[in-house]
């Protein structure tokens, strides 16, 4: 399955993925949509819990950021921005507290898709039911990317986690706002291209710093990618080639920057202190 194949499909991207996965079997289609609705509900639940819970994570590094932002004054007069960021952090703070979340596509990057998708939907007054097909599209984008590279910080750094999650979110929003498969492919590609090279450097090995704030940043990034693609901007590098570049750069990263907690912000005096304290 390639992005090139998908981009040539008329209509929304979700129709392409649904047909591919269920082969015209109506029962299989209903079952898949029902399962997706369950996943969506579990995602929504994790956002809701994260926005109201300000208990610290086990390390004490995160836990109160989502609620804090959600209740803060909107000084920028940008409610969409604030909402997307708060939702994304809500999921990752729940994750850091060992709460129940939906990996999308991983747990460390679990906030980006719900942050962006629910953030936009709530901002525009769209119902959760309208998000099921965009969610299918998001999953399909993750599947295409995973055919080239294992989606894991250990295999390709954060670019192989937050990259796919932002790409999936950008495609889902594009579909929610009426974009066809072609537009979704370019949204996803733009999002992915601009995450290449990000390192995976969790402080102390905990999925907290920089992961929680990173999801806030890249959920906004996904919304931006959708906006560009919906306005007709395209990825100059063909999307399948962008995936190849992402995988290639990921493999070039030294092990220290691939989820070992031995490089980047993890390998700072403060990062090392936290690692030592938590090992006690």
């Amino acid at each position: 399955m390639t992005f090139d194949e998908l981009a040539r499909h008329p209509g929304p991207a979700s129709a392409f993925f649904l047909e591919r996965e269920t082969r015209g079997d109506a029962d299989a289609r209903d079952a898949l949509l029902a399962k997706m609705a369950e996943r969506l509900a579990a995602m929504r639940d994790s956002v809701d819990r994260g926005l109201t819970n300000d208990a610290k994570s086990r390390t004490g590094m995160v836990g109160w950021n989502a609620k804090g932002l959600h209740q803060a004054a909107d000084l920028l007069d940008a409610p969409l921005l604030k909402r997307v960021q708060a939702y994304a952090m809500a999921v990752n703070e729940e994750n850091a507290r060992m709460g129940r979340i939906v990996a999308a596509p991983t747990a460390g990057s679990a906030g980006t898709l719900p942050g962006a998708l629910f953030g936009v939907a709530d901002h525009l007054g769209r119902s959760d039911e309208e998000l099921i097909l965009p969610l299918i599209t998001a999953a399909g984008f993750g599947e295409i990317i995973s055919e080239t590279m294992f989606i894991a910080g250990a295999s390709g750094g954060c670019g192989a986690e937050i990259g796919p999650s932002a790409s999936m979110a950008a495609a889902a929003i594009t579909e929610l706002l009426g974009g066809d498969a072609h537009a979704a492919v370019h949204a996803g590609s733009l999002a992915l291209m601009n995450t290449i090279g990000l390192v995976c450097d969790p402080v102390g090995g905990y999925v907290e710093v920089p992961c929680v704030s990173r999801n806030a940043f890249y959920s906004v990034h996904a919304v931006a990618a959708a906006q560009l693609a919906l306005a007709g901007l395209e990825s100059f590098i063909p999307p399948d080639e962008v995936v190849g570049a992402m995988a290639s750069v990921g493999r070039m990263l030294p092990p220290e920057l691939r989820e070992t907690g031995e490089g980047g912000v993890a390998d700072t005096p403060t990062g090392r202190r936290i690692a030592l304290e938590m090992a006690k």
């Binding site: 997706m36 507290r97 939906v102 991983t106 679990a110 999953a139 399909g140 599947e143 999936m168 999925v207």
Partner: peptide, 21 residues
């Protein structure tokens, strides 16, 4: 790999590879 494998698992955090896997 199917669509439900990408958007999942539904899991207790914090890491899909290091916890759920």
């Amino acid at each position: 790999m199917g669509l439900l494998d990408v958007l999942g698992p539904v899991m207790v955090g914090p890491s899909s590879s290091h916890t759920a896997g």
